[in-house]
Design a protein around this nucleic acid. Structure first.
Lengths: 342, 342
DNA sequence: AATCGCAATCAAACCGCTTTGGATGCCGAA
DNA sequence: TTCGGCATCCAAAGCGGTTTGATTGCGATT
């Protein structure tokens, strides 16, 4: 069943039927209802491919995921972000198209997406310092929103980010207030923009209290259980071990906890831990009382909001770049307590 | 730059240019090369929307992800499966379109995908017993492959699955051989097909050795850290506690390990644990020596293979359903050892 | 009665490609 | 010489919608 056939059954022209279904004003209400009813009765759905060609819009948004020929891994927050963004797209009749490509083909993929007209815009994931994608997308004229920020970008661009600096600053202050002065930072890889900001927040808080940051207490690695474990073990082996940890993710935090248990330290009593909690749906931080004290920000709702921003930008080309900075909550769980007297 | 313009620059008809670019034989080789060169020089990429309309093919595959209005959560293996499938699609010029929809709109989504012509086929995730999607997709005539199997399906369908029954049977036998006789099963939710099969494997192995399965040693819940912890705690509190655990996932396994440590049991010495390891990229099971003894099967390569199967089915409509059963490896890590003498 | 305005509808062009069904020119065979 | 066959190339008709630019009918205005 297509437009033409539906129109002929109704004794109307395709023009009128199209307009009736799309809510144009110049069609008699009685006619419109007749058309609507017939469309429903015959289970008519306009062919997306034809709409796309006719309107010149792709009605789709792209997400490009470069895969590890070298170091990076599929980001564990990715699934939840996508789920959030996908909700927004579904609600607005957009498709989400994912391109999983070797990272040396990332640029070609963006160019292809634009010139072949597959999508109306893209969301940029996991920005790094001086991220080349921003200039690239500007260059090819493909609307985009960055999830996160890219320090060093020369051009203006739209972004949505969590205030990572502030979150880690507050968490550090919270630990300092509890009497901790040697605080270990188990950070993500510091070519990722958010990891840099987190370290800045941590360092700022220490410096503001007159504490010189100790390089031995700052680790930077992938946010895996293994890496978290390794970093914590190393710091626990120091002559002056930390009495608290600030950890970049739930998963790293589990590695840290394992390290603590191995050396016989009780989390929340002998040693404090704060993690950043992205509220991943499959990685809940406890049920009633959180296991970890955490800076918390839902990556899923970030996905929803980022997608909304992008759709708005697509709908209003030429509008000024948009920015949105979300604050993380600091929620108290069982993993923090006053620094033990020495 | 479009076909018509490229053609006119070349002094050729669109027909010939189209054929030249698509490798049709009825075009002079010299002409073809001239066309190819011009296409490259002008950075010509055919408009995907037009191709799709003209050929009637969507050149896209759909993945429908129902989101939790009730119980389910975004599947943690999902990201890796998608990454694998996406590789296959990219390599073959297909797009992957993800639909994230409230689960009461799942059926409508599949129907829409078909009637609006957005995709040429779909992959069905996380099949349950008597999964209604199979009959639905048969009904609307949308090619599909199931990742997993759906016990109770009346109609034939294509699937790719891991031999979950065998994997858990082997793991159980391995534990039995080590002298364990009380083995706790920390399973996933048993409306999921794979969870049922795993339990079957576990039970079969026990029965084969003349051991009656103890309902108190079989837990079924979401595969989260929290749930794994809860299940393990409950079993450890039994008058006759298990000396080994068989656990459905890496994440559950971390909860189990936490429970063990809380009650002062050393994993691998006092108590044995085997998990199922999907080889998620952000959840490595150790680096050199695996932390957990595990039944292992890469969900990422499953994604690749499932996608290949689907593309094959799309390319050969009317062919017989295809099946592929992958065997899991049993790899030995640090979490298993002989049952302690009582 | 002639004109105007407005509501409602339609024919046809168009989006950018593929594909069908010819054309055209040239060569070798009858 | 004539004609069939072959290699090349092309005009035009789709694909299934949207959108532009009329057209029609009718009550209201002059």
């Amino acid at each position: 069943m297509n437009l033409k056939e539906l129109a002929s059954r109704l004794g109307l022209s395709p023009t009128t039927v199209s307009r009736a279904l799309n809510g144009y004003p110049e069609v008699n209400e009685a006619t419109r209802e007749r058309v609507m009813a017939a469309a429903k009765r015959h289970n008519y759905h306009p062919n997306t491919r034809a709409i796309r060609l006719a309107t010149g819009r792709a009605m789709a948004v792209g997400h490009v995921i470069p895969i590890a020929t070298r170091h990076e891994i599929v980001n564990p927050v990715f699934a939840d972000f996508i789920a959030g963004a996908g909700e927004t797209y579904s609600r607005n009749g957009y498709d989400m198209v994912l391109s999983v490509v070797p990272d040396d083909q990332e640029e070609a993929t963006y160019r292809g997406l634009k010139s072949k007209g597959n999508v109306d815009g893209v969301i940029v994931h996991a920005p790094r310092m001086n991220d080349p994608r921003i200039a690239l997308l500007h260059d090819i004229g493909l609307p985009f929103v960055v999830h996160g920020r890219a320090t060093g970008a020369a051009l203006p661009y739209s972004w949505l980010d969590v205030n990572n600096r502030r979150a880690f600053q507050r968490a550090t202050e919270f630990l300092l207030d509890l009497g901790h002065s040697r605080i270990g930072l188990v950070n993500g890889l510091e070519f990722m923009d958010f990891a840099i900001r987190r370290r800045t927040g941590y360092v700022d808080a220490l410096v503001a209290r007159g504490i010189a940051p100790d390089p031995g207490l700052m680790a930077s690695d992938e946010m895996t259980e293994i890496a978290g474990h390794r970093a914590a073990r190393a710091m626990l082996a120091l002559p002056q071990r930390p009495s608290a940890f600030l950890v970049a993710s739930m998963i790293s935090g589990m590695g840290v906890r394992r390290a603590l248990e191995e050396v016989g330290l009780h989390m929340g009593r002998d040693i404090s831990v704060i993690i950043h909690d992205d509220e991943l749906s499959y990685m809940k931080n406890g049920e009633d009382v959180p296991i970890f004290t955490a800076t918390r920000s839902s990556v899923r709702s970030a996905g929803r909001l980022t997608a909304e921003m992008l759709l708005d930008i697509i709908a209003h080309p030429g509008s000024a770049p948009q920015h949105r900075l979300l604050e993380a909550e600091l929620i108290i769980g069982q993993s923090t307590g006053p620094a033990p007297k020495v």
